[in-house]
């Protein structure tokens, strides 16, 4: 019976949270909510990458997933919500 260390336990918890946040990002009502949850998902996967010793990938995922992609999504949502007469 292998002993599970605290680091491994937190790793498994983060993996579980990763799956939950992915499902929430796809299915939560409200687009902005989903985008913020997506950036939480990115941060969690950054931690997983760092635990799997992929430091370069972790850095790229942190910067792109949590920074750049969120900015793009929020901009696009802003561009597809404010319509001219407030209708639709």
């Amino acid at each position: 019976m292998p002993v599970i260390t605290g680091l491994e336990l937190s790793y498994f918890l983060i993996l579980g949270a990763l799956v939950v946040t992915a499902a929430a990002a796809v299915h939560m009502p409200g687009d902005l909510t989903a985008v913020i949850i997506l950036s939480v998902f990115s941060v969690l996967s950054t931690v997983v990458f760092a635990l799997l010793q992929a430091v370069d990938v972790a850095m790229a995922e942190a910067v792109i997933g949590a920074g750049f992609m969120t900015a793009l999504f929020v901009t696009a949502i802003g561009k597809t919500r404010r319509s001219a007469g407030g209708k639709r």
Partner: peptide
């Protein structure tokens, strides 16, 4: 927008 989110989740 949701489809784009799904694409980036799959890519991740």
């Amino acid at each position: 927008i949701r489809i784009c989110i799904s694409i980036s989740v799959m890519e991740s």
